[in-house]
Nucleic acid binder design. Structure first.
Length: 424
RNA sequence: GGAGAGGUGGCCGAGUCCGGUUGAAGGCACACGCCUCGAAAGCGUGCAUACCUUAACGGGUAUCGUGGGUUCAAAUCCCACCCUCUCCGCCA
């Protein structure tokens, strides 16, 4: 959510920023129209209520003195009717303004490179050797190793699901534990395991609703949604709270299954683990002092990168251009891991600073000192990492000529088998 | 699912039957000052949030789970809903 004051005071600057990220600038005028009607009605009704409050006290005193109040009460009846009318106008216009406000995407940070789509993103750094080796795609080798079973998943659920078997299931578990231990023990994040079925308000808080309902799985008989990322649950932990500066930064890591309908991506990545309706992910979430949020974005990104480094997976860091930014983000670095079978890098983590965008929607504030006026915190999050894609990357990058797959050394304390072989 | 209890400011907790200077007693916590060599205790002062308005001091409106209703006036009365707790049932 944007700052309504910013919209009133600098509408042109906001319009320009919206165009920079390829968004609909006419929202600004829509908002301002409703806002103006709301303000007018509010101004009038506040004055009327002020008078009513005064007269109400007077009536109480007159009654005490047993004076006749019938004339004054009759007059106040009229005022009460007008107040009712105006309050109704206020309710309608406020709802309209709020509705429009929720449609605004975040504004890009000044450092965000210009551009329309992913082609204009900027490679920031690269790590590891992206080998051009001829390897089988992860879904083939996974099938041969007997650890990925797409057929049974299709029977159980449908397309875009996978049953992990034997060492595959164990490798998944090992990856989750490895990531959680790294972030909680070495990077200072508090591990949490939140609800993954959430209410509509939480979805609105992080920006999934109202605009992206078609991307979500919703329960038919209850007002619950399945989270598309633990970001939703974890960010809402502090909904409607005022934190103190010495609590910040608050850093959480969370494992959760994630559920996405993948509406509108019918032809894309139909095979393999890349795009599933259900996948596991370890998420990093921070609540920080706005003055430090860009340093915190750097360290968050580094924390996510560390997972890839320890696993020995080649990757690069990409800075998203304005046109490629997600709805809620002011600034994003994507981590892309190397997939030798495709000969390209693919997203495995997305690390973003949302500035006050989510904090406004969730009403999360902090006080600089005990007497200061509360201000919104900045929220950040990033995958650390998407587990299914990590497994896929391992199956390709650690694949040997004989069709076996080495287990990265960092996982040896979590999975006693150092190499995955066919028939095992 | 059945029965009952309850939701008041950062926290605890009055007020709700009998509507009217109650944005809300009291306590704790917190901040500042006095006292002290220093501290504790004690004393004094301050201390909700949002919005509107003002150059500023300030002024105004709203908020006692949420939404409606009654009334000149609602924390207090009426209706609906949500949440929490206890007991019973069921269940991993």
């Amino acid at each position: 959510m944007l700052d309504p004051k910013q919209l009133r005071n600098n509408p042109d600057a906001v319009k320009k920023a919206l165009k920079d990220r390829n968004a609909d600038a006419s929202l600004v005028d829509k908002f301002l129209a409703a806002d103006e009607r709301w303000r007018k009605a509010t101004f009038e009704v506040d004055e009327l209520k002020n008078r009513r409050n005064e007269i109400t006290d007077k009536i109480a005193q007159m009654k005490k003195k047993k004076e006749d109040t019938s004339a004054i009460i009759a007059e106040m009846k009229k005022a009460a009717d007008r107040i009712k009318e105006l309050d109704e106008i206020r309710r309608v216009e406020e709802e309209q303004a709020k509705k429009v406000l929720l449609e605004f995407p975040n504004l890009p940070h000044v450092s965000v490179p210009p551009g329309m789509d992913a082609r204009d993103n900027i490679e920031v750094r690269k790590w590891g050797e992206a080998k051009k080796a001829k390897v089988k795609p992860h879904y083939e080798i996974g099938k041969e190793l007997g650890i990925l079973d797409f057929e049974s998943a299709a029977k159980i659920a449908g397309s875009r699901f996978c049953t992990l078997k034997g060492l595959g299931a164990q490798l998944e578990r090992a990856l989750i534990n490895f990531m959680l231990d790294l972030h909680s023990e070495e990077h200072g994040y508090t591990e949490v395991f939140p609800p993954i079925l959430v209410n509509a308000d939480s979805m609105q808080g992080t920006g999934q609703l109202p605009k992206f309902e078609e991307d979500l799985f919703k329960c038919r008989d209850d007002e619950f949604y399945l989270v598309p990322t633990a970001e939703v649950s974890v960010t809402n932990i502090h909904k409607n709270e005022i934190l103190s500066l010495d609590q910040l930064p608050i850093k959480y890591c969370a494992f959760s299954p994630c559920f996405r309908r993948e509406a509108g991506s019918y032809g894309k990545d139909v095979r393999g683990l890349i795009r599933q309706h259900q996948f596991n992910k370890v998420e990093l979430v921070k609540f920080v002092d706005p003055q430090k949020s860009y340093e915190e974005l750097e360290s968050l990104t580094k924390n996510a990168e560390e997972v890839l480094r320890r696993l020995g997976l080649p990757y690069r860091v990409v800075e998203l251009c304005g046109g490629d930014l997600g709805f809620a983000a002011a600034k994003t670095f994507d981590l892309e891991v190397w997939f030798p079978s495709e000969g390209k890098y693919r997203e495995i983590s997305s690390c973003s600073n949302f500035e006050t965008f989510q904090a406004r929607r969730t009403n999360i504030k902090f006080r600089k000192d005990p007497k200061a006026k509360p201000e919104f915190v900045h929220t950040l999050n990033g995958s650390g990492l998407a587990v299914g894609r990590t497994m896929a990357a391992i199956l390709e990058n650690f694949q040997k000529d004989d069709g076996s797959v080495e287990v990265p050394e960092a996982l040896h304390q979590y999975l006693e088998v150092p190499i995955l072989k066919i028939g095992k």
